[in-house]
Each structure stands twice: as structure tokens, then as C-alpha cells.
Simulated scan of single mutants.
Amino acid sequence: MKLVCIPAYNEEKIIGDIIKKSLQYADKVIVCDDGSADNTAKIARESGAQVISHKKNQGYGAAIITLFDAARKENSDIMITIDGDGQHDPEQIPILINTLQENNVDVVIGSRFLDGKSETPGYRKRGIKIITSTANFGADFKVTDSQSGFRAYSKKAIESIHPTETGMAVSTEILLKISNKGLSLAEVPISISYGNDTSTQNPVPHGIAVLMSTLKFISVKHPIPFYGFPGMALVIAGSIMGYQFLDVYLHSHIALLGSLFAAILLFLVGTILCVTAVILFSMATLIREKN
């Protein structure tokens, strides 16, 4: 069964059209109404979709989690996620499905940047590229658009991926889980429209929040470069400063207490980072062995 899943929040103006177009390419459409204050849920039902409603707004990731759970309950062979704000064109759904089936991959991402013709606003493009570069560091593959919500998942991917992030960083979390599970991935170029962009979030703090969450996931997967290397550098720096303090004190009997405190602080922080790296690395190794 081909299932289209749509996370939606206050999208009464456009949701009906998205559902009707999506039904042309799917056996069923499920909408997760994430606590909308308008008629999103009502219009979605009238347009032919099954609606799962959150009592209050929980975030984009929470809607994606609900939709993954729904896809597993429906025993779907293919799940397509498409945003409910009208930015994605449902008529491009066959492109993702055909790529998934013809190339026998587990996940297909619709990328705004793959063909180099994106009309994405400059500030948004720069932010997405920074987040994507960070995400690529943690994955075993490289993508051009880590934040695209227009994706197709195979049955294997649906069963394997269990997101936990309730915010926008869920897109990156899913990428890292695709990598961790050894699932195959492909990208296809898509067009996108920002004419119905109704986001009320300030792009700067929003982008920083997504980047920080991305770094959190990657730091757990790669604790040695994230914690171990900086920790070792701080331990070495603290040791050098401590040696210099002793050298000055023994030869000149001058106690540079500021240098001493700095040396102790650097050494302690470095040690904590190194211990953190070892613990996380050990936990990650155990988890991989169990899987």
C-alpha cells in the first residue's frame, strides 16, 4: 500500500488541495493535525484523508513520529511524507516512488538543491547548507538537502526508523538513523514554492536550534572527535600552563595564581571531556553490537 503522510498545523487554506492531489498517487492519505486552532482537521477529513489529531501543538517532529507509527499500523509498503504548507508539489510524488522502486533503495529525498536551480531565499539556503554540512559529517553518505520533508520510505525503512526528536531536527535524526541502520538512500531534484510560506518562527533562532540539535545527535555518534580531541587539547594546554607556573615559582619564587587557576580549570574540563568521550564511545559500541 502506498501511503501519503502529511504533518499539518493551521493549514486550512491549502490542506484540502494537497490531499486531493496526493490521493491521485496513493492508496490512502493520513494527516497528523498537530493541535491546529483552525479547521485543518475538518477540511482534511472532508477532503478524503484519515486524520490523527494532537490535542495541543507538539512540534513538527512529534507529527512525524505519529505518522511513522501510523504507517507501521497500516503495514504500508511505501510511505511518502509531504509538508502541509503547500511548498511541495504532490504531482512530484511519482518521481520519488519511481526512484525508490526502480533503484531498489530504502529512502528517497526530494532535494531543493540537487539541480542547482533552487529558488530558495538566500538566508534560508545558507542556513540549510550549514545544517546539511553538519549532518553529512555524522552520516555515511552525503546529501544536498538534509532538511527536506518531501521523502519516500520503503517498508524496510518504515519498520527500522523510530524517530524521537519532536522538533525540526527530526529530519537530521532520521538521516543519522538511516546511516546507523545501513539503509540505502537516493536524492532526486524537486521544485518548491514559497508562495504559501506562513512560518512565524524567526529564521535565526530557529536555525540555531536545529543546528544545535543536529550537533547533539552527531556528537553522540562521533564522541571522540567531538569530545575526546578537544578534551585532550585542553589537558595538554593545562599541563603546559601548570609546568610554566612551577617553572616560574621554582626559579623566581613568584606565584602566578591566575595561571595556576587557569591550568587547573583547563585540565579538569579537558579530563571531563575525555571521560565523556570514552563513556559515549563505549555506549555507542554496545548499542551497535546489540543491533
Rank of each mutant, 00 (worst) to 15 (best):
G149E: 02
V275S: 07
A186R: 06
A233E: 01
E12H: 11
L246C: 08
E119Q: 14
L273A: 06
G48D: 12
I178F: 04
F261I: 11
E91Q: 12
E187T: 08
L257D: 15
K221L: 05
D145P: 08
P223S: 02
V170F: 02
L114Q: 04
G127F: 05
A63P: 04
V29A: 04
I95W: 02
L257S: 15
Q244W: 11
R45N: 11
L273H: 03
P163Y: 03
L100N: 00
L176H: 02
A263C: 14
I95N: 05
N57E: 11
K55T: 08
T166P: 12
Q244D: 12
S191A: 09
I14R: 03
L100G: 01
Y153A: 07
L185E: 09
N98V: 10
I93Q: 00
S133G: 08
I14T: 04
G207I: 04
L211E: 04
A277Q: 09
A152Y: 00
V269R: 08
A209T: 14
V105T: 07
V108G: 01
S148P: 06
K56S: 13
M1T: 11
I254V: 15
A186S: 07
K20S: 07
I93C: 02
L175G: 09
G110V: 06
N10F: 00
Q87S: 13
P7M: 08
Q58I: 10
F137I: 07
V51L: 11
V170Y: 00
E289Q: 13
